[in-house]
């Protein structure tokens, strides 16, 4: 089971790093994309936690469509934070 633990910690740090980058960066587009990446990474953690239904849904809705909606909205407004 040690390999699962290692994967989980790697995913954990990836998720936290991309969430931190999403908060930190001034570029809203990359913030939205790194939020999507965090979501995708978390969906891999759902798989590790034996939740395939949730993993599929999170990957398609949480990561895919949410990010698309954000990107459309950024295209209609502005890209840079002050």
């Amino acid at each position: 089971m040690i390999e699962f633990t290692i994967i989980a910690w790697v995913m954990s740090f990836l998720a936290i790093a991309s969430a931190l980058y999403a908060i930190k960066t001034k570029d809203l587009l990359s913030a939205a994309i790194s939020m999507g990446i965090a979501s995708l990474v978390v969906s891999i953690m759902f798989l590790l936690l034996q939740a395939p239904d949730v993993a599929i849904t999170e990957a398609s809705i949480g990561a895919g469509l949410t990010m698309a909606v954000f990107i459309y909205a950024i295209g209609k407004t502005e890209r840079w934070e002050e």
Binding site: D53, I56, T57, S60, I61, G64, L65, A68
Partner: peptide
């Protein structure tokens, strides 16, 4: 396929619907 086989395999109405929506996207 995903939403018709919801009671047998992982998936169901929500991922199935969102896959269709991503096709249109």
């Amino acid at each position: 396929y995903i939403f018709i086989h919801g009671h047998l395999t992982p998936g169901g109405g929500f991922p199935g619907g969102s896959v269709i929506a991503s096709g249109f996207l």
